[in-house]
Each structure stands twice: as structure tokens, then as C-alpha cells.
């Protein structure tokens, strides 16, 4: 403390400066937090995938006898849609980096649409499969893995819609300040990468 004069001026401004000071106090760690969170998320999927791989390698026949063959066309198209949506979404971030909010809205809107198509395709596939959740070990794995991933796609979709809603506020996202855009994009990429591995394991292996 330098002296009483300084202290009094601090007292006056305390409530206003406090909020500002907390934001400038340390560098923005929110993206770092999101990355740590995604490490935990990937460990959940890694756990589920390892269980699946152990079943696949330990069981005498995999998938067990009598499991109907999985149709590849619909999930294949679905995969292409989901993977391309990652690139579409990235253009949204490039747009906001140039302060182009309508560009952000266009590309994020398109991503949301593609995500919704993916989820719709997944539900359509579920409705037309010849087996249920409890038919055998493989089908249980199939539903739990794809369902858990579908849950993540749903969350990602909600995040995108949330960003879209916020982007309608004047000046909410700018070229410097767009944490929501970055975080939802990283999450979406993560969900995509998980799908690629999951597709390889469940449909192709």
C-alpha cells in the first residue's frame, strides 16, 4: 500500500474495478479448461472402446452368431455428412475472426442442420434395425456406443444453437472475443473424431 490517498480512491472505484480486474487478472484459461474437460471425455470413450475391443477379442465369434449384418450405406452417408460438418463449422470461426457475424451465423446454421440430419439418420437407422438392445452382447454394445455418441452430438448441437442465439446480440462475438465459438467448435471436432473411431470399430471391424 502506498498511502491513504491511493486507498481512498481505490475504495471509491472498488465495485466497478473489481469486475474488470477479475477479467484481466490472469490470461483467459477457459479454452485450457475445455481441453482438460475433453481429455476426461475421451477417457470415457476410451473405456467403452476398450471394453468393446476386449469383447471382440475374447469372444469365440464376433459378432456372435445370428447377428444380422449391419447396412453400411446409410451410416456411411451419415458419416460423410458429420465429418464434412466439421469443415463447414471451421469456416464459421474463420468468419468471426474477420468480424463477419452473418458469416458465422450462416456456417454455424449449416453445421447445425448437418448435425440434425446426422441425428435423424441415426434414429431412422435405429427404427429399421432387426435387432434390439438386449438381443446379444454385440447389439448391446452397438446401441450403447452409438447412443452415447448420439447424446454427445445432441449436446454439440445444443451448443451450436446456443452460439447462434447469442450471435444475434449486438457485438457479443467479435474477432478478438469469441470463446463460445471456439469451444463449441472444439467440442464438435471431438465428437467427430470419436465417430470416426466408433464407425471403424462397430461397423467395419
Amino acid at each position: 500500500m502506498q498511502g491513504s490517498t491511493v486507498d481512498e480512491s481505490q475504495t471509491l472505484n472498488y465495485s466497478q474495478t473489481e469486475a474488470a480486474a477479475q477479467e484481466e487478472e490472469h490470461p483467459d484459461l477457459r479454452m485450457f479448461g475445455v481441453v482438460l474437460f475433453l481429455v476426461a471425455e475421451s477417457m470415457i470413450f476410451l473405456g467403452l472402446f476398450s471394453a468393446y475391443l476386449i469383447y471382440a477379442s475374447v469372444m469365440p465369434q464376433w459378432p456372435p452368431e445370428g447377428t444380422p449384418k449391419l447396412e453400411l450405406l446409410l451410416p456411411g452417408v451419415n458419416s460423410i455428412i458429420l465429418i464434412s460438418s466439421s469443415f463447414v463449422m471451421h469456416r464459421g470461426q474463420s468468419a468471426i475472426k474477420k468480424n463477419d457475424v452473418s458469416g458465422l451465423q450462416f456456417w454455424f446454421g449449416l453445421t447445425a442442420l448437418m448435425g440434425a440430419i446426422f441425428l435423424g439418420g441415426q434414429l431412422y437407422e435405429y427404427a429399421n434395425l432387426e435387432f434390439g438392445l438386449t438381443t446379444n452382447l454385440f447389439t448391446s454394445c452397438f446401441y450403447v456406443l452409438t447412443g452415447f455418441h448420439g447424446l454427445h452430438v445432441t449436446v454439440g448441437l445444443l451448443l451450436i444453437l446456443f452460439v447462434l442465439q447469442r450471435s444475434t446480440r449486438q457485438g457479443h462475438y467479435t474477432s478478438e472475443k469469441h470463446f463460445g465459438v471456439e469451444a463449441s467448435e472444439l467440442y464438435w471436432h471431438f465428437v467427430d473424431v470419436v465417430w470416426v473411431i466408433l464407425f471403424g470399430l462397430v461397423y467395419l471391424l
Partner: peptide, 10 residues
Amino acid sequence: LISTPVLAAA
């Protein structure tokens, strides 16, 4: 961070 999510999966 690394181990707890696997318990959640189980």
C-alpha cells in the same frame, strides 16, 4: 482426470 471417466463408463 484420466482414470475417473473410465469408472463412469463401467
